[in-house]
């Protein structure tokens, strides 16, 4: 079960994980789209379920890729991209100026999921390398929907374990333009214990 608070030192560690994971993913993303993708400072919060929907952006529409993470640091991973970003990816990688999320064929969807795979794979492998803990992401699931509804799925998974979820959110931007895509990593309580023990910042 998650405690009521996380100490500043623990928060710093989790922020660093968000930085390392998303940093590696941003490098991969920069290469893919030949654009500079920059990270914003990660946010780490223990969020009560009642506030979780606000934390991720209520009913704003996003394209989301969801991964279960198994192994020594179990949890859930979400990549949420605003729809303008989806259009940008489809247009720049698919070489089709008119491509849009509104007409997503199976080819475009596979392309998006593959990008999600690469980015989340980069995020998870960076954390795994840093912590020397095995992490195995599932195949991604894809949906375009309200950010608040998307977050239901990983939270339902954590629902029996406590009243709060630990959310590590890293947003990124492209060439200074707000890209506002975000990575959310939701480690399970066991994963948090394991991390804190590993780094010697146990409560």
């Amino acid at each position: 079960m998650f405690n009521n608070s996380i100490k500043p030192l623990q928060k710093d560690l989790l922020k660093e994980l968000g930085n390392i994971g998303a940093g590696n993913a941003a490098t991969a993303f920069s290469k893919l789209i030949s654009n500079r993708v920059e990270l914003n400072v990660p946010e780490v919060e223990l969020v009560g379920f009642e506030n979780a929907i606000e934390f991720v952006g209520e009913d704003s529409a996003v394209a989301a890729m969801y991964f279960r993470v198994e192994g020594a640091l179990p949890g859930n991973m979400l990549l949420m991209l605003p729809l303008e970003t989806v259009d940008f990816i489809l247009q720049s990688l698919g070489n089709d100026e008119t491509a849009s999320w509104e007409e997503l064929d199976s080819y475009s969807q596979s392309m998006l999921m593959e990008i999600g795979n690469i980015l989340c794979g980069a995020y998870i492998s960076a954390i795994s390398d840093f912590t020397q803990k095995k992490m195995i992401p599932s195949v991604p699931a894809f949906a375009i929907d309200m950010a608040g509804a998307i977050i239901n799925i990983p939270l339902a998974q954590l629902g029996d374990m406590g009243e709060k979820a630990l959310l590590i959110k890293t947003t990124f931007n492209r060439d200074g333009i707000d890209f506002s895509g975000n990575f959310l990593f939701l480690p399970e309580p066991d994963a948090l214990d394991e991390l804190l023990r590993h780094f010697g910042v146990k409560q």
Binding site: G48, F49, E50, N51, A52, I53, E54, E58, D59, D145, M146, A147, G148, A149, I150, I151, N152, I153, L155, A156, G159, E163
Partner: peptide, 23 residues
Amino acid sequence: VGMSEVKITHPPTLLKTTGLGSC
């Protein structure tokens, strides 16, 4: 009404919840 909350009221107040996915 946030996720996992219950609220009770009477008119003219409206009850609203955003982001019902599997919930």
